[in-house]
Write a protein that binds this DNA or RNA. Structure first.
Lengths: 236, 236
DNA sequence: GTGGCAGGTCTTGTATGTAAGCAGCGTCGA
DNA sequence: TCGACGCTGCTTACATACAAGACCTGCCAC
C-alpha cells in the first residue's frame, strides 16, 4: 500500500510536524493528539509518538503525561538562548576563515543572494535561502557541520522571527546586510565581516524584541501549566 | 510491581544508556539490541527503542534498519565540531560577564575547585565536577541554559577525552588551569580569563589529538559500514 | 573444494492492545 | 445556590503482536 520509501514513516512524520510547527501552521498551544495525528497522516501512533518525543527534546512540543501534547509557546528565554548560541558560533567561525576561500562556495553564496533579492517578498522562500546563506558562511570556515546543532537549538528563535516578519513589508534590508557580510569576507576583511554579521544578527533580534513588546501575548512564558484541551489544531 | 516513580521508564532507560555510552562502559561498536536491552532492564521494547532513537539523534548510537543498533565510533570530525562549539559558546559568554558577579555562584565555583583537587585522581568524580565548573562559568554570564545544547553536542568529545585520560596520572594540571580562569574572572580581567579558558580548552583538545595519534584504532571513522553483529555488549 | 542458494534467526519498523491517570461535566445533596 | 463527588471520555505510557528485510550458516550441486 505504502510505496517502498527509503525514508521511514517516522522520519516523514517528524519532518512534517517540525515544518508545520516552525512555520506556525501549527500555532503555539495547538493540541497534538497522537491519535488524531496518526489518523490524519495515515500511519499508526508509533511513528507519531516517536516524532513527538523528538520534538519534545527539541523544545518545540511539550508532552504532559496522561494529559496531552501541545505545541510549545514561544519562550522569550529560549529565543534569547538561541540568539546567543548562533551569534557565538557564527562569529567564532569567522576566526577560522582561510586565506583563500573555496571559489565554488563563494559563487554559491553570491547566487543565493541574488535569489534572496528576488524572493524578498516571499517569506517562506526567503527563510529557506537565509538558512542556506548562514549555513554557507559556516562552511566557508570549515565549520559547516556545527550548523545542525544551531538549527536544533533555534526553533523558538525562528518562530519568534516569523511572528515578527508577518508584519514586515519585505526582507530587502536583510539582503543588503547579507551582501555587506559576504563582501567583507571575500575582501578578506574578517574584522569588518564580524562587525557586519554581529550587527545583522542583533538587528534581527531587535525586531523580535519589538514584536514581543507589541504583542506580548504571543510570547506567553511557557511555564508548566497545561493548556486548555480544546483542539486548536489547524489540520486539514 | 514497579514503584510509582515520577520519572518515566523511558527517562530512566535513556539516562542509563547515555551514561554507559559516555563512560565507555558501553564501548564504541557495542551492539544494542532492543530485545536484549529490554530484557536486561526489565522493561518492554518501547521505552528502549525510544531511548535509542534519542541517542541516535545525539550521534551516540547508530541505528541500522533491520540490522541492529550500535554504539557509534568516536568520530574525529564530531570531536572537532564539539570542540569548536564549546569554545565558541564558552568564550562568547565571557563577553557578557557582568560587572559584579553573583557572590553565591562564585563561592560555589571556588568550592567546586577544592573538590576537584581532592578528586584529581578519581576520573569519574573529576569529570562530574569539571562539567559543573564549566556550566557554572556560563551561569556567571547569565547563559547557563546554553550549556544543555553544548552537553548534547559534545558526546563524542567527552568519550574521546575519556579515552585519553585513562592514560593520564591525575588531573592536577586541569585544576590549576581552572583556578587561573576563575581568578581572572573574579579579578574582572575578562581578557585574561578568555585567554586562559581558550588555552585550557585547547590543551584538552591537544591531549585528545595525541591520543588519537597514539591509538588511531579507537577513533575509527564512523562511516556507514555495519559493524559485525557479534555481541560486544558488556552488560551485567 | 568451492560457489550458490535456501532457510532459519536475528534485527528494526509499524500496528494495536492494555493500563493508568487527568479533566470536565453533570448530578446530587446540603 | 453552591459545593462535592463520580462518571465518561479523553490523553499518554507501556506492552505485545505482526511484518519485512538482512545476515549467517549449512547443505547441495558441480
Amino acid at each position: 500500500m505504502r510505496e517502498a520509501s527509503n525514508r521511514s514513516n517516522r522520519r516523514v512524520v517528524y519532518e512534517t510536524l517540525r515544518r508545520k510547527v516552525l512555520t506556525l501552521e501549527l500555532p503555539p498551544g495547538a493540541s497534538l493528539s497522537e491519535n488524531e495525528l496518526a489518523a490524519s497522516l495515515g500511519v499508526s501512533r508509533t511513528p507519531v509518538r516517536e516524532s513527538l518525543i523528538l520534538l519534545g527534546e527539541e523544545g518545540l512540543v511539550r508532552v504532559f503525561p496522561k494529559v496531552g501534547s501541545f505545541v510549545s509557546r514561544v519562550d522569550a528565554e529560549r529565543v534569547a538562548d538561541a540568539q546567543f548560541l548562533r551569534e557565538a558560533v557564527e562569529l567564532a567561525a569567522f576566526d577560522d576563515i582561510p586565506e583563500t576561500l573555496d571559489p565554488e562556495l563563494v559563487a554559491e553564496l553570491r547566487a543565493n543572494l541574488e535569489h534572496q533579492r528576488e524572493a524578498r517578498l516571499d517569506l517562506e522562500k526567503f527563510f529557506e535561502l537565509d538558512e542556506a546563506f548562514h549555513h554557507g558562511l559556516l562552511r566557508l570556515s570549515g565549520h559547516g557541520r556545527a550548523w545542525s546543532t544551531v538549527v536544533a537549538a533555534k526553533g523558538h528563535l525562528d518562530r519568534a522571527r516569523r511572528l515578527g516578519l508577518h508584519e514586515t513589508n519585505g526582507m530587502g534590508r536583510f539582503v543588503d546586510e547579507h551582501h555587506s557580510i559576504l563582501d567583507a569576507v571575500v575582501a578578506g576583511d574578517t574584522s569588518s565581516a564580524r562587525d557586519s554579521l554581529r550587527a545583522h544578527l542583533r538587528a534581527v533580534f531587535d525586531d523580535i524584541e519589538k514584536t514581543r513588546q507589541r504583542s506580548p501575548e504571543l510570547f506567553a512564558t511557557d511555564d508548566g501549566s497545561v493548556p486548555v484541551r480544546r483542539s486548536i489544531a489547524v489540520w486539514e
